[in-house]
């Protein structure tokens, strides 16, 4: 009887763990090259340097082809039981929250850090996976042909999950909507397979993030300070080995002032011990490391996150 209860408990907890993993959000964005080619850009002053960046609002308001492509993709994702985030809706949300966002930014950073509208969009919508969509109508004599390039990019790491490059059947019928639809159908299954492989990988090996640990200049402890038999840097490395999925991470650099860990695999969920299974993101995972450093060194730490997949912990004060 005890055995049966134990098996049932294990099955239920396993199911609960799976059901509560954070579902990666997906959003289709017109690619930068497509926006530039079609003049849907705005100039942005990035610390004195003028940069051309995509103007998504203008693109969606003026280009029905792109809207049709995004709608087709949203449709098949919906059929897969996996609705995607609407870029249009996110842009509207961004506009309505603009004033609040500006206030929060200045309060948090207290400095004049330039943030492009694209960064704001990504920060606001926080898609885990960005579908970077580019297509082009090519004239072949009397016929037109659609060439497309869809890349699914993991926003945490910037790695390409699935790349789909191809071209449609040349047609002289002049019905561009059908050709766009054909392009979407052409890459659909390859794209879904790439996504599926990525999800399998996430469950098997965890999410991949980057972790930086630094110290303020006036912090009395550095990463070569010894605690017991080990230096602080080594103690943190041991922590990483114990708290990453299958102990997977790589130490990119380790000096007395800075540690940088890349390809850090964090679990999708963490058992908080009270029966709660909590979905994990980079910042949440970093909180435990902050507590560990404080417990080991007595130093308070500041935790900041950049994008979705990179955290920086600065030791020696907030």
């Amino acid at each position: 009887m005890k055995k049966i209860s134990l098996i049932l408990f294990l099955v239920i907890t396993t199911l609960a763990a799976y059901s509560q993993a954070k579902k990666p959000t997906i959003m289709v964005l017109p690619s930068e090259i497509w926006c530039i080619r079609n003049n849907y850009t705005i100039n942005f002053d990035d610390m004195g340097e003028t940069k051309q960046i995509p103007d998504y609002k203008k693109a969606l308001q003026n280009n029905s082809d792109m809207r049709a492509m995004i709608a087709s993709m949203a449709d098949f994702m919906q059929k897969e039981g996996y609705p995607i985030k609407s870029l249009e809706q996110e842009l509207k949300n961004l506009e309505s929250e603009a004033a609040e966002e500006m206030l929060m930014t200045s309060k948090e950073s207290g400095s004049e850090v330039a943030e492009s509208p694209v960064d704001k969009l990504k920060a606001n919508a926080q898609p885990d996976i960005i579908l970077d969509l580019d297509f082009e109508k090519v004239q072949l004599g009397p016929k037109t042909q659609i060439k497309f390039n869809l890349q699914a990019i993991d926003a945490y790491t910037g790695k390409i999950i699935s790349g789909n490059v191809g071209q449609g059947t040349p047609s002289s019928a002049g019905d561009i909507t059908n050709q766009l639809q054909e392009a979407v159908l052409s890459f659909k299954d390859n794209f879904l397979e790439g996504l599926m492989n990525h999800f399998n990988n996430l469950f098997a090996d965890g999410r991949e993030i980057i972790v930086n640990v630094k110290r303020w200049g006036d912090c009395e402890v550095d990463f070569e300070t010894e605690f017991g038999d080990l230096e602080l840097g080594e103690i943190i490395e041991d922590y990483m080995a114990k708290n990453t999925v299958k102990g997977r991470f790589s130490t990119k650099s380790a000096t007395e002032n800075k540690l940088r860990f890349e390809q850090v695999r964090i679990p999708m969920t963490i058992d908080e011990g009270d029966g709660n299974i909590r979905a994990v993101d980079a910042r949440y995972w970093g909180r435990s490391l902050v507590k560990f450093i404080k417990k080991t060194t007595g130093q308070t730490c500041k935790l900041t996150s950049k994008g979705l997949g990179e955290i920086t912990i600065i030791m020696g004060g907030k």
Binding site: K23, Y82, F199
Partner: peptide, 22 residues
């Protein structure tokens, strides 16, 4: 009928659907 085939294999537990596990 590729999509129907996929759904059949998913409902019979042979393959996983895209949102399984979340």
């Amino acid at each position: 009928m590729y999509d129907n085939l996929k759904k059949k294999l998913q409902s019979d537990g042979i393959i996983k659907s895209l949102n399984s596990g979340f």
